[in-house]
Design a protein around this nucleic acid. Structure first.
Lengths: 341, 341
DNA sequence: ATGAAAGCGCTAACAA
DNA sequence: TTGTTAGCGCTTTCAT
């Protein structure tokens, strides 16, 4: 057990000023390098600061200054297996001039959520909102409060015109399905979809259907199941197919995580991949090349998306304007699970 | 391109008061449910709030109120593949009364870092600091400013007495190595260590050495390489072993990610797992049971650790006291990569 | 049940 | 180069 020493004789700027024998204005100038200060004075101030363990009160700063040099990020607590990548990208895009504050939204979109959001126009220069983390109404409210907003993996809801960053989901799936058809000659191709409420999940499904249509393959509802961007759910879905005697020649998973679940279900049933059935995914998660067989998938530049979002947000903050829709290109990464090589 | 509407006629509490025909004090009472307000008055106030799109200024609130109902989390931008799990745990432990603000520390621990930290005693009730995200000096400084601090996956640095949460790393590795020795009779067991600067990496290595010693197996330096908690690095290390004609009977990876890299290197070299060499990991990442063969590993209750850290921090904030060291138990999860079944 | 007014810690004119 | 001072938006006694 530790006992916390009696708190709260926390130093303020005037304590520092007093100890250094200057005015608070001078201390402020020293800290912010705003306006001229004699070097000797600055030294005394810094010394006082460290002797008193002084730290500026960011709230007071925002209040007085009206600025904010931090970008906010809102994501769902789940985050997914690429939360880290997104983060790294955003950080790169934010640059040195901005700090990053993240709020992990609770599951249930509560009432008045936007009102109580701990990240807002007062402590943040703008917000990057990832798909599924905030209800549309909150977005509307936030944007009515004229908070710069950028959407990630989701496009602007109806009636709003918010810059957004996402992938060429439809084209990516289309291309990989086409690979399955054209290169390998498969025609019985199943699809494991993502959560229906997610926009990119819809796009990926559309890409699948379009590719079939383009090659005169009839769409078969029985060959589509919910994979939920989730290994366990995908595993169940594939097992169910197997139990029902359904064995497509190829399975397209809407993301790599569900591709993983697919692989597991297939292994468990002693179905050989890609010999008996081919499997492909989407995202190119860092681990995907380590699966066995190494997964053929669509590479989505996740880190680049984060970086782009941050860049757009900065544009929006600094110049009041930013590109509305940016779709990052995706690319098929051929490995072995499709039957190649 | 969007153009942001002219910003900043952002409503303040007195705008709301004016529109509702009450004083700012009353508005404050309504929002915070502090003190009696006539129901009809409250209605008018809420209406004014939504008409004006008013949102309270959190900085001003902290300033005036001196409270803070948010917990801070500091992590490295990498985050690792379990950032999401940690987050979910912390959120659960934080409960409804606290919000969570996260700061992803930049790579380079800069000078005066603690001074400029965007999460501090003024906007946060306390901080959870994950291993490797802040240098010890920053920890010292922060704790001298009497900010409640809890360490995650790292124990208190010398001279400080901060509550910390970590795993029984040493015992976990000890047990899994023992499994390899006692159940399978392997004696030529290699180890892929984690980043040396991380405390838990050291503990895991110690567990390995101790288990060997306990079974009279001589420690062989050539059978230890740096896996860096990282698939690519592990892959390289294992390939190098193979190239040098080193083929242990089993490989213990310090975490699941390096186990994954190990598997890849082995597959590439057509070495059969577990037939030719067994592989085990540590963490039990969600994906580990989907590898092929499914990975035998040590389960570390990552989410529980996050929850515990949040709980400790709340204790510290609310009662000024908290348990100093908590080590969460780990458990061997037997699957197939060790040769079982 | 409500209002007036004094700060909270800081920044930014404006003076000197 | 430095100090004075007026707020920034909010909470909180203290009156009423």
């Amino acid at each position: 057990m530790v006992d916390l020493q009696a708190p709260d004789m926390r130093a303020t700027i005037s304590d520092v000023a007093g100890r250094a024998g200057v005015s608070t204005a001078t201390v402020s100038r020293v800290i912010n390098e705003t306006g001229p200060v004699a070097e000797s004075t600055a030294d005394r101030v810094w010394r006082a600061i460290s002797e008193l363990n002084y730290a500026p009160h960011s709230g007071a700063r925002e209040l007085a200054g009206g600025r904010s040099s931090t970008l906010g990020l809102i994501l769902t607590s789940a985050g997914g297996y690429f939360a880290g990548e997104v983060l790294a990208g955003i950080e790169a895009g934010a640059g040195d001039a901005y700090d990053l504050l993240i709020y992990a939204a609770q599951k249930g979109p509560a009432e008045r959520q936007a009102f109580y959001l701990p990240l807002n126009e007062h402590n943040t220069g703008g917000l990057i909102v990832t798909a599924g983390s905030l209800p549309d109404e909150a977005l509307v409210e936030l944007s009515e409060r004229s908070l710069p907003l950028v959407l990630l993996f989701q496009s602007s809801p109806n009636g709003l015109a918010l810059p957004s960053v996402s992938f060429e989901n439809e084209a990516g799936v289309h291309r990989i399905v086409e690979h399955l058809i054209a290169v390998h000659g498969y025609r019985e191709i199943a699809f494991l979809s993502g959560p229906p409420q997610l926009e990119d999940a819809g796009a990926r499904l559309r890409g699948y259907r379009q590719a079939l249509a383009d090659h005169n393959i009839e769409f078969d509802e029985k060959l589509v199941a919910q994979g939920g961007y989730n290994a366990a759910m995908a595993e169940t879905a594939v097992s169910r197919w197997l139990d029902n005697g359904i064995l497509p020649r190829a399975i397209v998973a809407a993301d790599d995580e569900s591709a993983m679940g697919t692989l597991s279900a297939l292994h468990a049933a002693r179905v050989r991949v890609p010999h008996d059935v081919a499997v492909v995914g989407f995202d190119d998660a860092p681990l995907s090349r380590h699966l066995s067989p190494p997964l053929t998938t669509v590479r989505a530049p996740i880190e680049a998306a984060g970086e782009m979002a941050a860049r757009l947000l900065r544009d929006l903050i600094e110049s009041g304007t930013a590109d509305l829709q940016t779709k990052l290109p995706t690319e098929v990464v051929v490995r072995q699970s499709c039957g190649c090589e």
